[in-house]
Design a protein around this nucleic acid. Structure first.
Length: 296
DNA sequence: ATGTCATCAACTTGATGA
């Protein structure tokens, strides 16, 4: 049997695409991920650096917002094929937090879940509502025959093993029992938390705040997650966090969090095509016409 | 309880979000 081809999928909260463009480009150059979800662009659609990313070999799809939020999807050598922007269920919600597209044969839901602080309060209520909307939408994706990943900054510390000091964070929205329960309910649909599945209790942190040299001392949180649906989970090969990005000067407070998955085997592709032919009206099937980026 | 960093809207500083 020959060496299997791998795909790298990563999520990175850049905390401002304008301030962090240099960090992002250096990381893309070094790690060459195939699919990337970005959060906290903090930039309008007009300010998104599409030219610099294209020059780096990445096609992009983005949903910006002035000052806050903002999400994007990058495809190495391809432009992601959009299937949805924004979660259903709250039409008045104008915050740019969800973008979904087909990239390299995977349906990717890229998300920036509300932080929810201070808690309790209206922002925490919004977070819980947003999690319910996400769960409702995710329920329609978990059993698709097609590979699906939900990845991004979930702003959820799943267990006390995912924080350097649970007591120090006990009043924070990221650790509240209601938030953890909502995350557990989502996993119970059949999603696999890829870093936990691969690393167990030794799963690395993905975020370190700017206080007291927490990054250098590895006093962090695991809040950036990649959830795999039933079709994709068996293909998980490796998972990790590029902590070196966080240790640079003027870094984002998050580090890129990634998985490697095996490319679909010819046999699996054939079965998948047979299933697709049997159910032609299933939602979420990716466009097979992703445009090649000429610069790649 | 504190700590840091970036942005915005007012104008060198303070409120806000994370």
């Amino acid at each position: 049997m020959g060496r299997r081809k791998l795909l790298t999928l990563a999520t990175f909260n850049v905390n401002g695409i304008g301030t962090r463009l240099g960090h992002l480009l250096a990381w893309l150059e070094r790690e060459q991920p195939d699919v990337v979800a970005l959060q906290e662009l903090k930039a309008t659609d007009e300010a998104f650096p599409v030219d610099a990313l294209e020059a780096a070999g990445y096609g992009a799809l983005w949903h910006g917002q002035r000052s806050w939020n903002g999400v994007a999807l990058l495809g190495r050598g391809v432009v992601p094929q959009e299937s949805r922007r924004g979660l259903p269920g709250e039409p008045a919600d104008r915050q740019s937090r969800y973008l979904e597209a087909a990239v390299h044969g995977i349906l990717v839901g890229a998300l920036y879940l509300p932080n929810g602080n201070p808690q309790p309060g209206p922002k925490f209520d919004y977070k819980l509502r947003w999690m319910r909307r996400l769960a409702r939408h995710a329920a329609g994706l978990v059993d698709l025959p097609h590979p699906v990943v939900l990845m991004g900054d979930f702003n959820v510390i799943p267990t006390d093993g995912d924080v350097y000091d649970a007591k120090a964070w006990r009043k924070d929205a990221l650790i509240q029992p209601e938030v953890r329960a909502a995350y557990e309910d989502l996993l119970a649909q059949g999603w696999t938390d890829a870093l936990h599945a691969h690393c167990g209790d030794a799963a690395p942190y993905t975020f370190w705040d700017y206080f007291r040299q927490h990054a250098e001392r590895d006093r962090g949180l695991r809040i950036d997650h990649l959830l795999l649906n039933r079709a994709l989970a068996p293909r998980l090969v490796e998972a990790g966090v590029d902590r070196w990005v966080r240790l640079q000067q003027k870094a984002s407070d998050h580090a890129p969090t990634w998985i490697r998955i095996a490319a679909a085997t010819p046999a699996k592709r054939a079965r998948k095509q047979a299933r697709a032919a049997a159910t032609p009206d299933k939602p979420g099937a990716p466009a097979r016409t992703a445009r090649r980026n000429p610069s790649a």
